[in-house]
Computed example of a mutant assay.
Amino acid sequence: MNNILRILRTERGWSQAELADRLDVSRQSVNAIETGKYDPSLPLAFAIARLFERGIEEIFDDGLSVSKAAE
């Protein structure tokens, strides 16, 4: 899953460790989400969206267009 988590984090000047502390996860989890190796759970995705005051869809993209999802 593609995401803009790294961009949002660096815009705020936070390290991966600082973001991890704010989300109550490990730094390794933040790294894995940023690099697309791990998709966050739904509760974690909501926590990320709340932290950055954005919608989940603004941060995460599953690569499916609206037309593909409707099929």
Rank of each mutant, 00 (worst) to 15 (best):
S15T: 15
S15D: 10
Q16A: 12
E18P: 00
E18F: 00
L19I: 04
L19S: 04
L19T: 04
A20Y: 09
A20D: 04
A20K: 05
D21K: 14
L23I: 06
L23E: 06
S26Q: 07
S26H: 09
S26F: 04
S26W: 05
R27H: 10
R27C: 05
Q28R: 07
S29E: 14
S29A: 15
N31W: 11
N31D: 06
I33C: 10
I33E: 11
E34R: 09
E34Y: 09
T35I: 07
G36Y: 05
G36L: 02
K37G: 08
K37N: 12
K37P: 00
Y38Q: 14
Y38E: 08
D39V: 12
D39M: 06
D39L: 11
P40S: 04
P40Y: 03
S41R: 05
S41K: 07
L42W: 12
L42P: 04
L42H: 11
L42A: 13
P43F: 08
L44P: 00
A45G: 13
A45R: 07
A45P: 06
A45D: 04
F46D: 14
F46R: 15
A47G: 01
A47I: 00
I48N: 11
A49Q: 04
A49T: 00
A49E: 01
R50K: 12
L51K: 08
L51D: 08
L51N: 13
F52A: 07
E53W: 00
R54F: 01
R54L: 13
G55L: 10
G55Y: 09
G55A: 14
I56K: 05
E57R: 06
I59W: 10
I59A: 12
I59L: 13
F60L: 07
F60W: 06
F60N: 12
D61T: 02
D61F: 10
D61P: 00
D61A: 11
G63N: 08
G63K: 03
G63T: 00
L64C: 08
L64A: 13
V66I: 13
V66E: 14
S67C: 01
K68P: 00
K68W: 13
A69Y: 05
